[in-house]
Design a binder for these strands. Structure first.
Length: 840
DNA sequence: ACGAGTAAAAT
DNA sequence: ATTTTACT
């Protein structure tokens, strides 16, 4: 792989509908020049929809032929995955992207029954029809756009040929996938931007749709060395406030118009413009304000989508990091869930970069020029650094996710996993001539679920959680299935078209635990794709990410491995989500059922092998003191009988299980602690209880064996008493007693009950504070009618101590119950009782 | 705007 | 008993 030279290469970043020319357009990144190159469609490509009405039927309906946007009909043949039949369809071709909507509307009534592929976004369709893959490298010669081919390394091809030796017809296809991952990922020149706005009301964020007040600062931080704050000169300007700042440049503007015009230069200059919440604030504000103060619209390169959700730049590309870093998949898989809960730039950058925003008490509008410059600059700096940390992980990840999903950079960074998988699936459908089913047709053919969920309101039965054996155990080995659900999807040929297929002879191929069956004649599309991605991750890129010596390549493989994980792990969930256009509950239900089947049969085998099982959840089994040979036998049995990889996940020096599921504490052989589910760990727990909890944990951490644990308990007892007394003597500050709870819906929609955090939020609202969905409400428990007060309104002497003692107790009982039980055996049960009663 | 299962507190 | 949140 040649990573040293990108000569004459262009990176495809975006495919979009260009409003000015009413055609599709492509945004490439010219790697050598560090600039965007825009190419407008010159192929005369026309949008279309597919209908199973015949040409005669359509002609009889004169509305369509008379419609001025209509161009012509074509006949196409497709494979219908729902009926397993070839079908002839009429392709209704429109004149241009603008008229496709009108053409569709002219036969809307007919299409409700018969249409297929009528609701698909034009630029997605264009992406496939032109055979272009966003995120890949191209050469542009005489108007021709040619993919730069990187052949996979020989060792990689050999390995994958070995893995697929029983399915040789799939080898060519998987080699195409390898090209996506072997093509190098170039760095992209980019600039982060953040604005500050004057506001006469201290607590109000200015409304960007009105933009009543001036922009007073624009901070910029770029990959090629721009470190700058543009500032508006207001009254009382004092240059001396700025003399000490030497880590970045400050440029003072006499007029706001000049300041905005200078900002616009950067928006046109840099290929990628990064913001944090620019879709909803910064870019919207700049545009509104620019027009308001009389800048000609032609000079403003900021455009909005019709729903006002997306701020696009005419000549370059805008990425809103707020959306991307708050994407669930990104948070969980790519970034190891290191910033759970937080959504703000401050919280996210603290978690990922270890530094947060500049703390300030003075409202922005009252800051000195020096304070404002420092504050504003840090925001742009953090925004940029979110794309730079971990050796440009962000850029690598985004480009690889684009290659897998076939989405443009602006679509990818703004949409969630279901849109990514939808785009991937649609692309594959087109590639192999499959008709894309309409969601209502899909449900009609595949039916509903047949099992009953344990949780009210859920659609089908999920995973098994084995009742834990309470007590303390030394030497516990945890085995788990390597990506259980994706493995099951691959192994059992699960896909929306293969589950409950039309062939009578497949009906006997039952899925255990359900009334569904799966096709024996055709390979399922989802099964094939998820199988590819899984195999590439497990057999190729996970090993390469570890052993590759060249840092550049190693970083790329690491990003490949993580990007694959994102898709693989979400592949099951989307089929059970109504919002997914290939929603197919039987697929999700079969996946979960086969997961249960896998763990249940493995459990049976452990008892054959006489390995004691202490606990298990979904895809894991906790084995007590297992002999290594027996684990080997178990792993072999699973491989032979279930064709799933069972792996040793972790080994505990000791593990304390309570009676509660998903609730335990253990110490690994390397001394690291593992805590699951205990309230002491949870985000909403007050700091004072949390810190006591962690102090106790670190005492336990030192214990090597059961005897040590006994001594540890004594220490814990003393520590707990101390803290209890602190509470009673009111030696704690309000801050340490705060509960943090997120508001999951708008305040007005809490109608059934009024939880405590809602009470506190309403108190704040009364004082004129705006409260939004997702806000973390901080409150303390007090002795009053409501029982709670927002922390801002409370005094230390109002605190309801009893409530806190209760909370302290439940937190500690979770640990002690587990420890106590084995204590019962050693010291008798009085010990624990005395310990707990001593607390209250 | 990705699934189901579990725990705990307040109402 | 139900609602709500946090977590696996």
């Amino acid at each position: 792989m040649a990573t040293d030279s990108y000569k004459n290469m262009y990176l495809l970043l975006s495919i979009y509908y260009d409003r000015d020319s009413n055609r599709a357009a492509l945004k490439f990144y010219d790697i050598e020049k560090g600039k965007i190159k825009i190419i407008k469609d010159n192929t005369g490509h026309k949008p279309y929809l597919l209908s199973d009405l015949s040409i005669e039927e359509l002609i009889n309906n004169q509305d369509i032929v008379k419609h001025k946007g209509f161009d012509h009909f074509e006949i196409v043949t497709k494979y219908d995955p729902l009926t397993d039949k070839k079908v002839k369809l009429t392709k209704v071709v429109a004149r241009d992207p603008l008229s496709i909507g009108g053409v569709r509307n002219s036969i809307r009534e007919l299409l409700k029954k018969h249409s297929w592929e009528a609701r698909i976004k034009y630029h997605h369709c264009y992406t496939y029809d032109r055979g272009l893959i966003p995120g890949m490298l191209y050469r542009i010669e005489n108007g021709d756009i040619k993919l730069v081919e990187y052949s996979p390394e020989k060792s990689v091809v050999e390995k994958i040929s070995l893995v697929y030796k029983n399915e040789p017809d799939l080898i060519d296809e998987i080699k195409e996938w390898i090209k996506l991952f072997q093509t190098p990922v170039p760095d992209i020149r980019r600039i982060a931007l953040d604005i500050e706005v004057y506001s006469p009301q201290v607590d109000r964020i200015p409304n960007p749709k009105e933009a009543k007040h001036p922009i007073i600062a624009v901070s910029l931080y770029s990959s090629d060395g721009i470190r700058k704050v543009l500032m508006l000169k207001r009254k009382n300007f004092d240059e001396s406030e700025l003399v000490d700042i030497d880590s970045f440049d400050i440029q003072i503007f006499e007029s706001e118009k000049d300041l905005i015009l200078e900002t616009i230069k950067y928006l046109n200059e840099y290929p990628l413009v990064l913001t944090f919440n620019g879709d909803n604030f910064d870019l919207l504000y700049i545009r509104t304000r620019a027009l308001k103060i009389g800048i000609n619209e032609d000079l403003v390169p900021i455009e909005f989508s019709r729903d006002m959700e997306e701020a696009r730049l005419k000549n370059t590309i805008h990425i809103d990091l707020y959306k991307f870093f708050n994407n669930r998949s990104m948070r969980i898989y790519a970034f190891g869930n290191r910033y759970q809960g937080g959504k703000t730039l401050d919280e996210i950058s603290r978690a990922l970069l270890g530094e947060g925003k500049v703390e300030h008490e003075t409202p922005i509008s009252q800051m000195t020029y020096g304070e404002l410059a420092l504050y504003s600059f840090r925001d742009a700096e953090l925004t940029y650094k979110l794309t730079e940390f971990d050796d440009n992980l962000f850029i690598r990840l985004v480009l690889l996710l684009m290659r897998i999903s076939k989405l443009s950079i602006d679509d990818l960074t703004r949409h969630n996993i279901s849109a990514w998988i939808k785009s991937l699936m649609y692309f594959e459908h087109r590639k192999i001539g499959y008709l894309i089913p309409n969601p209502d047709e899909l449900i009609r053919f595949k039916g509903k679920t047949t099992t009953k969920a344990l949780i009210k309101g859920k659609k089908y039965l999920g995973a098994i959680v084995i009742d834990p054996v309470p007590g303390i155990f030394t030497n516990v080995t945890v085995v788990d299935f390597a990506s259980l659900y994706p493995s099951v999807i691959k192994k059992w040929n699960l896909s929306y078209e293969t589950v409950n297929c039309v062939h009578p002879e497949c009906r006997k191929n039952r899925i255990p635990g359900t009334s569904h069956w799966v096709c024996t004649k055709r390979k399922g599309l989802t099964s094939k794709l998820i199988g590819f991605l899984r195999d590439l991750r497990v057999y190729i890129y996970k090993p390469l990410a570890k052993k590759e010596l060249k840092p550049e390549l190693r970083h790329q493989y690491k990003a490949v491995e993580r990007a694959l994980k994102v898709f693989i792990n979400a592949s099951y969930g989307v089929f059970g989500a109504e919002t997914f256009p290939l929603y197919c509950p039987p697929v999700a239900e079969c996946t979960a059922a086969l997961g249960r089947y896998a763990i249940a049969s493995t459990l049976k085998q452990t008892s054959e092998l006489k390995i004691p099982v202490l606990y298990g959840d979904t895809d894991s089994l906790f084995l007590w003191n297992p002999e290594p040979e027996k684990i080997e036998m178990l792993i072999k049995w699973v491989a032979d009988n279930l064709s799933i990889d069972l792996e040793i996940d972790k080994v505990y020096k000791w593990l304390a299980l309570s009676e509660r599921k998903k609730n335990y504490i253990g110490v690994y052989t390397d001394g690291e602690v593992d805590i699951k589910g205990l309230v002491g760990k949870k985000r909403n727990t007050p700091e004072f209880i949390k810190s006591l909890f962690y102090d106790i944990v670190s005492i336990l951490q030192k214990a090597e064996n059961i005897e040590d644990l006994e001594k540890a308990i004594e220490e814990i007892k003393i520590l707990t008493r101390e803290n209890y007394n602190k509470l009673k003597r009111k030696e704690l500050s309000l801050d340490q007693l705060v509960f943090h709870v997120a508001l999951s819906k708008p305040l007005s929609s809490y109608t059934k009950t009024t939880p405590q955090h809602v009470k506190a939020a309403r108190q704040l609202e009364k004082l004129g504070k705006t409260i939004d969905v997702g806000d973390i409400i901080t409150y303390v428990k007090v002795r009053s009618q409501d029982g709670v007060k927002a922390v801002q309104l409370a005094r230390i002497d109002e605190i309801d101590q009893e409530k806190y003692v209760e909370h302290l107790k439940t937190t500690l009982v979770q640990i002690l119950e587990a420890l106590g039980i084995s204590f019962d055996e050693i010291l008798g049960s009085r010990h624990l009782e005395k310990f707990i009663s001593g607390l209250v």
